[in-house]
Design a protein around this nucleic acid. Structure first.
Lengths: 154, 154
DNA sequence: CACTATACTTGCATTATGAAAGTAAAACCT
DNA sequence: AGGTTTTACTTTCATAATGCAAGTATAGTG
């Protein structure tokens, strides 16, 4: 195990509490992948940011501990796991979208958005959120996961 | 100098770019302090999270490099610096507020909010943002800082 | 001109990170 | 059935970031 504490519950400020959950370099990027259609270990490894497998394992574990991520076996194979966001995890879209808007406003020249999201984004922040969550719900019913139960399967 | 690169520009995803600016344990907490009336080195040191002075120096430097924070001397003394948020920095309130809402929703039992913010928060997210920014602007005109110029004074 | 306050810096021990290689179990392939 | 491949991790080890304590430089104070 690489590590188990993040920042270590240093204050009762909600911002500090929030950062304690997702305020590291990788957690929000994994949440992003999960929001936009990636669900397997290998898919996260293959993202542009090229996370190491040990860090990915660690962060997936922490996100599960916090009830942000859960998983089930792939229906076709017990050697594949399908990770997905719980309600708590999906709610982070309301943090991610303002972050994207800020980054586009001030670093828009360096930023590039995958074509798949371009269209949804054109409909404004609210439309983008609705479209993204609707796509996730399609996936959830296709794979029969219920994001109401935040329980971690071990 | 403790460090100069954060994550190191690993992809052109706006989320990764945003995290590169503020995705560490301390930067957003400093921005929070600056949003809510703290302006001096010692005040940041005295926050509940008890940041180390070397880390504080480092992060203030990085935030200045990125045009999120600037400073001027205290009118009463050239040995005191007054740090303040640029427009780019103040805009992060639109990221912080959703983060607070998320944390309150899922960690509300552990969270505690200073009385000063309780009232403003009661008027809803938009009212809170307006009240916070209005208070900042009062400070800015009292100390004659112009947050339109993001230039770093050295 | 000593004394204090502010804003850092430095040194050093501890902890986190990252790249590469290794492993265990399931599935697939003659 | 037995070897190979795939998936999801673990382990190892070098490097980088962090955190505490102590030190320094400069401005202002008595």
């Amino acid at each position: 195990m690489v590590s188990r504490k993040q920042h270590g519950q240093i204050s009762d400020c909600p911002i500090a509490l929030g950062l304690d959950s997702i305020g590291d370099h990788w957690s929000l990027l994994i949440v992003r992948d999960l929001l936009f259609g990636k669900h397997e270990f290998r898919e996260f490894l293959d993202s542009d940011e090229s996370i190491s497998s040990n860090i990915l394992t660690d962060r997936l574990g922490k996100l599960q501990e916090q009830g942000i991520v859960a998983w089930r076996y792939h229906p076709d194979s017990r050697k594949r796991k399908l990770y997905y966001l719980t309600c708590k995890g999906k709610d982070l879209i309301h943090v991610l979208v303002p972050l994207v808007r800020w980054a586009l406003k001030y670093h828009g020249d360096e930023a590039r958005i995958p074509p798949a999201q371009q269209a949804a984004l054109a409909s404004g922040p609210e439309g983008f959120i609705q479209a993204t969550l609707a796509a996730l719900e399609d996936w959830e019913s296709a794979f029969e996961v219920d994001t109401k139960d935040a329980a971690t399967r071990v």
